[in-house]
């Protein structure tokens, strides 16, 4: 177990370091380089030269990278051009809100996808299975924003049941008190994940149903419900944890679109506004955080997986 952990953590650390290299490269691709990014568009060439010298941007790239990494490790992500705030404090405000939205979407997706997947596996080859398979393929091909627009048209415009704007409160508690306004954003963010998870549950349950321990349980006269709960689901759902880790990037991209559509005040909206206003420190800060969160998320799910399923440790 310890060997597995060290190996996996070392790998994650390498990837994290490379993520920072990628963001560093992007920083240097900016028009005018980092000086322009920090001093603003109106800085004079003299001011830029002075800044470059002062900050060490006239040194070699490897030296600069080491300095950049040092700043990152001390939590310095630069300052927004537009919002008169450090990127770190902006992220501190926005990240929990995105985590809330993503968490709700994931919970909803898991709650719906697992029963749907079981239903499909049990009714394999029947009408319900074909119908849900078709729906899942349709959901794969549907861009999040089109789905969101259709939901707005139907539930907000036609039926006038739900607001088309997400809660605008400053605190997480405030957001949660405005539940009707949360429905459309959360459902929009969840749909693609429901499709993926239900497909996965279907095939995992089917695989497990043909295992010998299921036949043994049947032979002992156990009921179908008990076999499903005690034997099949236990084995089928453990890998779902890994799937969660793999879906983190998709989830982040989804919240980016959902937040900009529904005007939900999270990290995605911050990022989108930054893209519209060429606020590069914010853009790169959010990109870095999304990358780091993905790496850490998949590390955690891998560890959870190894704890839950001892076979994994010996394989890797």
């Amino acid at each position: 177990m310890i060997r597995f952990l060290t190996k996996r953590i070392a790998q994650a650390a390498t990837v994290l370091l490379l993520v920072s290299v990628i963001v560093f490269v992007l920083l240097h691709m900016l028009p005018g380089g980092p000086a322009r990014a920090i001093l603003g568009v109106q800085a004079t060439p003299e001011a830029i030269a002075h800044f470059n010298h002062q900050q060490g941007y006239d040194r070699s790239l490897p030296q600069q990278y080491v300095m950049y990494l040092g700043r990152l490790l001390s939590g310095d992500l630069g300052e927004s051009y537009k919002l008169n705030q450090t990127v770190a404090s902006l992220l501190g405000e926005r990240l929990p809100k995105t985590a809330l939205l993503a968490g709700l979407a994931l919970t909803l997706a898991a709650l719906l996808a697992v029963p749907l997947g079981i239903l499909q596996a049990v009714r394999r080859g029947k009408a319900a299975d074909y119908l849900l398979t078709g729906a899942a393929f349709l959901a794969y091909a549907t861009p999040v924003f089109f789905l969101g627009l259709v939901l707005i048209l139907v539930f907000s415009q036609q039926l006038q049941l739900l607001p088309a704007e997400a809660p605008q409160a400053d605190t997480l508690g405030g957001i949660l008190t405005d539940l009707p306004a949360l429905v459309l954003p959360v459902v929009t963010a969840a749909l693609g994940i429901i499709a993926a998870f239900s497909r996965y549950t279907r095939s995992a349950v089917l695989d497990n149903l043909s295992e010998e321990y299921v036949r043994t349980a049947r032979a002992k006269g156990q009921s179908n419900a008990r076999i499903m709960a005690r034997h099949v689901l236990r084995n089928a759902l453990i890998p779902l944890a890994t799937l969660l880790g793999l879906h983190l990037p998709t989830l982040f991209s989804g919240t980016l679109v959902v937040e900009s559509m529904f005007n939900y005040p999270g990290m995605g909206l911050l990022f989108w506004n930054a893209a519209q206003g060429s606020d590069f420190p914010v853009l790169l800060g959010v990109t870095l955080v999304a990358g780091v969160a993905t790496v850490l998320g998949s590390l955690l799910t891998d560890i959870a997986y190894a704890v839950l399923d001892p076979r994994i440790r010996s394989v890797t």
Partner: peptide
């Protein structure tokens, strides 16, 4: 691995903004 860790849409948006 590192490039895949950054959600594709974020990378695309940054490059398209540059």
């Amino acid at each position: 691995d590192a490039a895949l860790a950054i959600p594709a849409l974020f990378l695309l948006v940054v490059v398209a903004a540059i």
